[in-house]
Design a protein around this nucleic acid. Sequence first.
DNA 1: CACTTAACCGGAAAATTCTCCGGTTAGCAA
DNA 2: TTGCTAACCGGAGAATTTTCCGGTTAAGTG
Lengths: 208, 208
Amino acid sequence: MGDSMRERATRRLPLLDTAPAERADAARNRHRILTAAHELVRERGTDALTMDAVATAAGVGVGTVYRRFGDLGKLAHALVDDGERAFQTRFLSGPPPLGPGAPASERVRAFLHAYVDRLTDEAGLLAVAETVTPTARYTSGAYTVHHAHLAALLRSVAPRADAHYLADALLAPLAAGLVLHHQRAGVTAERTKAGLDQLLRGIADGAG
Amino acid sequence: MGDSMRERATRRLPLLDTAPAERADAARNRHRILTAAHELVRERGTDALTMDAVATAAGVGVGTVYRRFGDLGKLAHALVDDGERAFQTRFLSGPPPLGPGAPASERVRAFLHAYVDRLTDEAGLLAVAETVTPTARYTSGAYTVHHAHLAALLRSVAPRADAHYLADALLAPLAAGLVLHHQRAGVTAERTKAGLDQLLRGIADGAG
DNA sequence: CACTTAACCGGAAAATTCTCCGGTTAGCAA
DNA sequence: TTGCTAACCGGAGAATTTTCCGGTTAAGTG
């Protein structure tokens, strides 16, 4: 990196600094809100996660919660953001078979299994996020990433198949609401994984 | 049927008449509510379907709407009940391949295709119904019937597979929210059907 | 250190969902 | 017809979500 470039960047970050940098009070409130929300969920469950309760617990106005997070669903997504980032890191650049290095068909399977494990822990919050709007799940950033990743793998597994649709179809059984329903009915994660494996057979076997 | 039995039944229907028969005013209000709700949706779309608006349009109190239909989701389900009954009749006792008479594998395919067509028309209302609660879809009477039917067919197609889970997994891509998302993105019903067909390959091919 | 202003804050208020319960009435029996 | 009672009715009210905007303030500017 040349001196002139570093100097410019140090002074103003003219190109990279498109986002104006959050103001100090805003950052503090965001942190308070997130902390209060986590605590609320931990102590009283996802049912107690309401915008009003979070605002009160965080000591800010409800308008502030909305300005920061948009709506209850986005707030719920924010609460599982750490886990989501870790998950993305694992399948984008972690060790195989989840990460690069393994055959695509194995990565697909590993991805779905890892997703099931993730849902086992966070289905409650994700269900809140997916229930705010009928299409909330499909328009979320996380879903977009999952879909793009899975579709790319599927294109490699079965080049002639409709990878874009199949990615949606394979992600569909992993809706938080269905997982919640299965948890209540005693359907285990292992059984879910086995079922997904069977679904994959139709795609892997010389279908592309 | 013996005379004594017929006589008893005529007089009181002692065994069959477990439901006390709806009172006249209740029946009248149910009808008013349903009519008003249909009109509301037709003229202003599913977004305008609120319990308050329906109550006002029907000329009854909001409490009456709730007593009759339970919640907004159930009301939405009630609005598509005619179509649902017709659909059930077709796959339970209509002509093959949707109804009995065709091989189970063909009936599975016909069922999913018919479901797609149904969703094409009523995704909006079903999305409302499925969004009231995270698990609303899976606990509805319609879903229970669809699931039981599909699972039975799958057991016959692949006796050793986990038909119960696979039925959920095959029904999952037919969530109203996803269909809505696809409709907005221009994904056609044909493409959806083709995608589901591919998913079925993994189940049909000697997997049971 | 003032000054400017874009960004931020909070809470009132409108919309909705759903619950509750005192008052009313349809349907049946005497 | 008169009563009885289970079932029904409606709307007030509590809980939530979300929008809006007048007032406030952090953070550069000169």
